[in-house]
Amino acid sequence: MKKYLERTPILDYDHALIQGLVAKRGWHNLEDEKKIESIYNFVRDEIPFGYNIDDNISASSVLKDGYGQCNTKSNLFMALLRAVGIPNRIHGFTIDKALQKGAITGVWYVLSPKNILHSWVEVYYKGNWYNLEGIILDKPYLSALQQKFSDCKTTFCGYGAYTDNFENPQIDWNLNNTYIQDKGINQDFGVFDSPDDFFKKHQQKLNLVKRWLFRNYIRHQMNRNVSEIRMAGIHSNQSLESKLLMNLEGKSR
């Protein structure tokens, strides 16, 4: 298991930001199952879904950004787990760009590559490897999507999700695999000891112009689209809570 605990340039778990977070959350003091669950929930919900400047940025950079997508959240998740002694590896794929439709719109969707680089983290615990992809979408964003497309209960593709159970996707970890984009997979690259190894061999299929546009313009528009959906869901929930509170207050008079 030693190779699944190593520090790498991307998995820089000795960085002060990561060490400070681990100490603040007290993750070292938990049993291994609770370490995985607590770190999983942190990366899923406290690092909101969003698009960073590149896939191969360090875990500390993802933490500094405060948001991430499949590949960058995986970088952070792996580093945090290795920081507390939980072995892990990365599984690489490509997914169909249809999965991103809605987050990316218009001409930028047309110009985006057909196949998008994707990954999930495989975590080793008590003799089993668990596929943990469900960290990608934070619960407030997923809930907002479910409200926006409330008529859909089964297969949903778009806005960063591709699942056959949109009403109740398996995104909570309880000694199980978790998924939210797996139905979009169209190529399997296999497992790698670290994201560094994965990204040395595979990169997003973008030419220099498209890469510059993505870094400096497109991803910011995508993040605005995602944020608007998330905030609409939050406001909707707040309005519902206010109405329920008013009804309860009215009945108590």
Results as ranks from 00 to 15, higher is better:
5 L>S: 06
8 T>S: 15
14 D>T: 13
18 I>G: 12
19 Q>I: 04
21 L>V: 13
21 L>Y: 11
25 R>M: 15
26 G>W: 06
30 L>G: 01
31 E>G: 09
33 E>C: 12
36 I>N: 12
36 I>H: 09
42 F>V: 08
43 V>W: 13
45 D>A: 01
45 D>R: 07
46 E>P: 06
50 G>P: 12
50 G>F: 09
51 Y>N: 08
52 N>R: 10
56 N>I: 03
56 N>H: 15
57 I>C: 03
64 K>R: 14
65 D>I: 03
68 G>C: 13
76 L>A: 03
81 L>H: 02
89 R>T: 09
90 I>V: 15
91 H>P: 00
94 T>W: 00
99 L>F: 07
102 G>Q: 10
105 T>Y: 04
105 T>K: 14
107 V>T: 14
115 N>F: 12
116 I>Y: 06
116 I>S: 07
120 W>P: 04
122 E>L: 09
127 G>H: 01
131 N>E: 08
131 N>I: 02
133 E>G: 07
134 G>L: 02
135 I>L: 12
144 A>I: 06
145 L>Q: 06
145 L>C: 04
146 Q>M: 04
146 Q>E: 03
150 S>M: 07
150 S>R: 09
153 K>L: 09
157 C>N: 12
158 G>V: 04
161 A>G: 05
164 D>W: 05
164 D>N: 11
167 E>G: 15
171 I>P: 05
173 W>P: 13
182 D>H: 14
182 D>L: 09
183 K>C: 07
184 G>Y: 14
185 I>P: 03
190 G>V: 04
191 V>I: 01
194 S>G: 07
194 S>H: 11
196 D>K: 09
197 D>C: 02
203 Q>M: 06
203 Q>C: 02
204 Q>D: 05
210 K>S: 03
216 N>T: 04
221 Q>T: 02
221 Q>C: 08
225 N>Q: 04
227 S>I: 04
230 R>Q: 13
232 A>I: 11
232 A>K: 13
234 I>R: 08
243 K>W: 09
246 M>I: 11
247 N>A: 07
247 N>D: 07
250 G>T: 00
251 K>A: 03
252 S>D: 00
